[in-house]
């Protein structure tokens, strides 16, 4: 029963099995080639970075699913981090309150993006490119380039602590991914997001309020970016304005490697999980093989391109097979 369902592609689709396979191969490769790979310390570190990457990727993937993008995810993360730091450090607020304020600001930023996209009807690329600079301006305007170091120990524990050898962040990530899986598989909102991304006009004529869906995706994107930013603060133990600066590449890379369709209409939680894993393994691997770290971005860029090409090949192939 389970096997036939598995074969029918209902549980794991063709695209997903490719990503899972790639992740497995990398894990096996690393286990065989390095003694230090399967140590508890290394696993803790890898899964913690993976978890952070997943939040970064989710912030992009939910927008990609609607057929749009959000170039400002890193800036929103930075803004959230700085607002949080300012609240706990300068204003001496309790961290739970500061957290709410910071996430509130993130949502405001997302709402602004969504407003310009849906109400004013500007292309998402242009909107988020502009707000990338606007939000970054606020990050440096508020912090004046300094980090906030007085971060409460309770809060830092979230990013540094572990349970059964795995970081708290790992459990948070798994929980979030399950929620995302549930949302896109079972809820009306999730399905309408995919419909909007797959065919905007058809979605409109099917009575889907596509403006509201895209607004919702923007809020969700900003929420994930905000959470990602705060977790980064928790892990670093300080709220640095530089948080989010390298997110553009990571967010697209993990989302795309994880099987999110650039044209919209497809997102997969298990794919994102593997995408995040592949990303950390490759980064880890580059260090192991002693690749020149200055060239790191070139490697990562090539991997994104390769993933897109593979996806494209799969599309062409399945179109050929499906046509009479």
């Amino acid at each position: 029963m389970f096997l036939t369902r598995l074969k029918s592609g209902k549980i794991i689709t063709g695209a997903e099995s490719g990503i899972i396979g790639a992740a497995l191969i990398l894990v096996i490769l690393f286990t065989l080639s390095s003694d230090s790979f399967l140590t508890q310390y290394n696993l803790f570190n890898l899964t913690r970075t993976q978890s952070l990457y997943i939040f970064v990727a989710l912030s992009q993937a939910v927008m990609l699913a609607t057929g749009n993008m959000n170039l400002s995810v890193g800036a929103i993360a930075g803004l959230t981090a700085v607002i949080f730091g300012y609240s706990v450090d300068t204003l001496d607020l309790g961290w739970p309150l500061a957290l709410l304020i910071a996430l509130g600001v993130a949502l405001l930023a997302g709402a602004f993006n969504g407003f310009v996209m849906t109400v004013l009807g500007v292309n998402s690329f242009i909107v988020s490119l502009s707000t990338l600079f606007i939000f970054t301006g606020f990050v440096y305007g508020i912090s004046e380039g300094y980090s906030y170091r007085e971060i409460p120990a309770d809060f830092v524990r979230i990013g540094r602590g572990n349970f059964l050898g795995l970081p708290y962040l790992f459990y948070l990530m798994v929980g979030t991914l399950i929620a995302v899986w549930y949302m896109f598989r079972y809820t009306v909102f999730g399905r309408q997001v995919l419909a909007t991304g797959s065919n905007l006009e058809a979605a409109k004529l099917s009575g889907i309020n596509t403006g509201r869906i895209i607004m919702g995706a923007n809020l969700l994107s900003a929420f994930f970016a905000g959470v990602g930013g705060l977790l980064w603060v928790s892990r670093l133990g300080s709220a640095q304005p530089a948080i989010g600066q390298n997110w553009l590449l990571i967010s697209f890379a993990v989302a795309i490697i994880g099987g999110t369709a650039l044209a919209g209409g497809r997102i997969t939680a298990i794919g994102l999980f593997c995408g995040g894993l592949i990303m950390v393994l490759i980064k880890n691997g580059l260090i192991l093989v002693q690749a020149n770290v200055y060239f790191e971005q070139a490697f990562l860029g090539s991997i994104i391109l390769l993933t897109i090409l593979l996806d494209r090949a799969r599309e062409v192939w399945s179109r050929k097979a499906g046509k009479s």
Binding site: L194, S198, N199, E201, A202
Partner: peptide
């Protein structure tokens, strides 16, 4: 095909 159906679904 353009605005009636979701061909990928």
């Amino acid at each position: 095909k353009e605005d009636g159906l979701f061909l990928d679904f």
